[in-house]
């Protein structure tokens, strides 16, 4: 069954690029929802049937790490898998993200082939 995806990034350009890359990667996905920061992402997760989240880290209002921390405390949504898509993929910040439940990370810039390689097993 195709999975519904939530894209979380303060850049509308990057949300479009990720959405396009998912299509170009040939991945089987359902609806794509979008959010501009962590708080908006939490609101979408509480209302919509999202199967996987692809989230930036460096965002205003509520960043990706704060989003993971808040999400991990909410029973209805805490088990939805989150991938980090960010320019920041150092061991320290990705380690913190994984300790808060992130299941993987994709570094910007990326190609559709890389998207397929990293996200394919989860889609």
């Amino acid at each position: 069954m195709a999975k519904n995806v939530l894209l979380v990034d303060d850049s509308s350009t990057m949300r479009k690029i990720v959405s396009r890359s998912l299509r170009q990667a040939g991945l089987d996905f359902g609806d794509i929802f979008e959010a501009g920061d962590g708080q908006e992402a939490l609101d979408v997760l509480e209302k919509e049937a999202v199967d996987i989240v692809l989230s930036d880290i460096n965002m205003p209002n509520m960043n990706g790490i704060e989003f993971l921390r808040e999400k991990s405390g909410r029973d209805g949504i805490k088990d939805i898998p989150v991938f980090m898509i960010s320019t920041e993929t150092g061991d320290d910040i990705i380690g913190e993200a994984k300790s808060l439940g992130a299941v993987g990370a994709l570094k910007k810039p990326f190609t559709p082939d890389k998207v397929n390689e990293v996200l394919g097993p989860f889609m």
């Binding site: 850049s11 350009t13 990057m14 460096n58 960010s86 320019t87 920041e88 993929t89 150092g90 570094k107 910007k108 810039p109």
Partner: peptide, 14 residues
């Protein structure tokens, strides 16, 4: 343009 700067900035940080 901001996102290109952001991606380059991330690389420089690394």
């Amino acid at each position: 343009v901001g996102e290109i700067a952001n991606m380059l900035g991330g690389n420089v940080k690394t």
